[in-house]
Every structure is written in C-alpha cells, then in structure tokens.
C-alpha cells in the first residue's frame, strides 16, 4: 500500500477553544473517507508529540464519527490560560494551525478516490504548493 505524507491542512479543518489552561481543538475531516485514516494515524500520543514544546500533561482524543470529526483536549498547554499567560495568544486561538501544519501518511488509494469525485466536492485543495513544515 503506497502511503503519501500529507499535511493535515489538506485533509481537515480545525478550530481552537480554551477553558483556563486547557485547550481543545476540533478537527473536522474534509471527507468522511478520511475519518478512519486519521483515526488510525492521529492518536492522542501523536498529537501530544506535535505539541511537545508545550509539554501537555494529558491529551485526550474524542471521536465523533457522525460528524467526521475529532475533539482533542490538551491539558496545561496555555501557560496558565488567558488570564495568566505571558504569551501573545493566551487563548491558544492560533494553535489549531499548529496541528494542521503536521503531516500524516495517507494511503494513495484514499487520496485518489477522494480526488476522483466532482471538483466541487473535492476535499483536497489544489492550492497547497508546499507545506511550511510542522513539528513532525
């Protein structure tokens, strides 16, 4: 099975939310066929590694197959949260794109099947000239 390393930005979209020092990132697959692929590849451990510089004390992944989505909850990654952080983005609003910058291996057959659907429905944008390169 041929695997192609693909940036998450081309496979999914994401939104960050915060509560105190806890960050959640909703990751939504652009196509239902990608859900099982990401379910296998993007484990809580993998996400913890992507956020290693922020030393999460715990990462939990919740699965929402009906929405083709995952909810990642990362504890203690916001430097105390918006009322305590010395950083510019105490909410962690920008961090959904730290996740989307990472790449995962995807079977070529899945990418081909999705790309073969009508262009309007295609989840894979052709406008990804290069991935700036995430932590992985």
């Amino acid at each position: 099975m041929e695997l192609i390393s693909t940036p998450l930005h081309a496979l999914a979209h994401a939104r960050s939310g915060d509560k105190g020092n806890r960050l959640n990132i909703a990751l939504v697959c652009r196509h239902p066929a990608l859900f099982p692929v990401l379910a296998a590849e993007l484990t809580a451990d993998v996400v913890a590694e992507i956020f290693r510089a922020r030393a999460p004390s715990r990462v939990v992944r919740y699965e929402l197959p009906r929405l083709s989505a995952f909810n990642f909850v990362l504890d203690d990654v916001l430097d105390g949260g918006v009322n305590a952080s010395l950083g510019l983005d105490g909410h962690g609003k920008t961090l959904s794109f730290l996740l989307l910058a990472a790449s995962v291996p995807v079977p070529k057959a899945v990418l081909d099947a999705i790309a073969g659907e009508s262009p309007a429905a295609s989840p894979i944008s052709t406008r990804h000239p290069q991935n700036p390169g995430g932590p992985r």
């Binding site: 979209h13 939310g17 919740y62 009906r66 909810n71």
Partner: peptide
C-alpha cells in the same frame, strides 16, 4: 463545516457538556 466546527468549540468531553440545567451529549448529533 461551519456548524461542525462550532458544535465542538470549547467542548471537552462531547458526551458530557455540563450546564446548570442539563448535561448535553453531542455524540449522536
């Protein structure tokens, strides 16, 4: 897409979103 992103905004356990009146379970939405 816009609705899915917002359903999970600031949610932790999607099966147990605590509010004063009810615990919301999103898993069958």
């Amino acid at each position: 897409r816009t609705v899915t992103e917002q359903i999970l905004y600031e949610i932790h356990d999607p099966a147990a979103y605590l509010t004063p009146d009810v615990v919301l379970d999103l898993t069958e939405v």
